[in-house]
């Protein structure tokens, strides 16, 4: 359609930044349905197994959870700063901010890895003997814990890939001062991953 670069002068080639961002927002709403369903499950199971959820949550390390929250919040800051940097035509700084974001995401996953490993070591994993010996409510808690933080972790990995991709684009100049909507949409995705964690954190780590 009017997307053809031949349509008009090169500097007036059709581009719909608002449409691009709206596309990402619409996708984020489908993510909300995906995670929303799990939050529904969580809320009903927690409501019907309150005691068991409290006992089970004590197994989680609040310190690691808090640390990971700080990491994700900071990574949300750095990705938004990378957009400001590119707006100011500071490509190098933008790339640094993107690299820091990816590094923080990696740090989050490393923490998650050690956290899960420690649980696995204690036999607390889906189908694990230690876990199956626990009450029904506790088994539900850990089932939800693994599915929800696991799916969130998958989103962290996807976000890392997306942002790394944008770093290549920024280095190549495809993402530049006048055209940075790709970086913006990747940023939107990353912030959603952050928002999901903002809710996961108190619901799993802060029930005492």
């Amino acid at each position: 359609m009017s997307n053809s670069p031949l349509a008009v002068h090169a500097d007036h080639a059709h581009r719909d930044d608002i449409g691009s961002r709206m596309g990402m927002w619409l996708f984020l709403f489908t993510e909300l349905i995906l995670f929303g369903g799990m939050f529904f499950l969580y809320s009903v199971y927690r409501f019907t197994n309150q005691e068991a959820f409290h006992i089970a949550a004590k197994e989680l390390n609040t310190l690691v959870g808090t640390f990971n929250t700080a990491i994700l919040l900071t990574s949300s800051l750095t990705i938004v700063l990378s957009i400001v940097a590119i707006q100011k035509n500071n490509r190098k700084l933008s790339i640094y901010f993107q690299l820091i974001t990816v590094a923080l995401a990696l740090g989050f996953l490393v923490n998650k890895f050690f956290e899960w490993s420690a649980k696995f070591h204690h036999g607390i994993y889906p189908g694990g003997e230690e876990l199956l010996a626990k009450s029904k409510g506790e088994i539900l808690f850990f089932g939800l814990y693994y599915v929800m933080t696991g799916l969130h972790g998958l989103h962290v990995i996807i976000g890392m890939v997306l942002i790394s991709w944008m770093t290549v684009y920024t280095a190549k100049g495809i993402v530049n001062k006048d055209n940075y909507v790709k970086l913006e949409t990747a940023g939107l995705y990353w912030h959603l991953v952050d928002i999901i964690w903002i809710f996961l954190f108190p619901l799993f780590y802060l029930i005492t």
């Binding site: 912030h191 952050d194 903002i198 809710f199 954190f201």
Partner: peptide, 19 residues
Amino acid sequence: TALLVASIKSFLVLKIFMH
């Protein structure tokens, strides 16, 4: 309380970080 704080945090992210 936990959900209220999480909602405030999300509001800030949506409004400022997500523009």
